[in-house]
Amino acid sequence: MQHEIQARPAATVLKVDLEQGESLTCEVGAMIAMSSGMTVETTSRQKGGKGGLMKGLKRMFSGENFFLNHFTAQNPDQSIYLGPTLMGDVIYHPLDNATLIVQGASWLASDPGIEVDASWQGFGKALFSGESMFWVKCSGTGDLFLNSFGAIYEVDVDGQYTVDSGHIVAFEETLQFKIGKAGKSLIGSFLGGEGLVCKFEGQGKLYCQSHNPPSFGKLLGPQLRPR
């Protein structure tokens, strides 16, 4: 499987070349275009896996779709173009028998060997960070593609790192995150618009997005026709 990421960071598109018989599991609605020798299968489970219904439901709670689309090349030299649904970036993160915790809706596509499941992140964190209660947990070995709103930048955490809520895309399972205040005082943090932030601890990779979708939505929304 070869891939190429083009037009970064806002209108990013992912082109994946597949050999005959190779498959790619994608987020529903991510396919933009493809060559004509491909087939698609829609299921709620990992390709060839079991236990679809519950997994699908859990994924729904984490902000992903109930279904997954598995594209398979029937002929040699096929390619497929994938894109996130909103303006944003795509990154490549290969997994080697490891786990990546991904913020809901940031998973774009992965090797069929990677299990895309949801993991419970805790009530308190969800309440205070404004993030979802379930996050997507991608584990296994193979290629993994994530998307975001905003450009994605990578941070190698060794010790502590602070991220404003709404800017997390994904992090390796070796990192722990807690909710904390951004500044010295809690009130100050709130007045400064930062409020509670996510503090990462440990060692591992962290992916952040440069922009926060709700902030943009709140600026544009008032100018739109009422619903």
């Binding site: 399972e173 990192l175 060692q203």
Partner: peptide
């Protein structure tokens, strides 16, 4: 050390933290 996303991951480190 204990940590990780689950909070239950055990990290074993040498003194100068070159190997974990």
């Amino acid at each position: 050390e204990m940590g990780g996303s689950s909070g239950r991951m055990v990290f074993c480190r040498n003194a100068d933290k070159t190997v974990t």
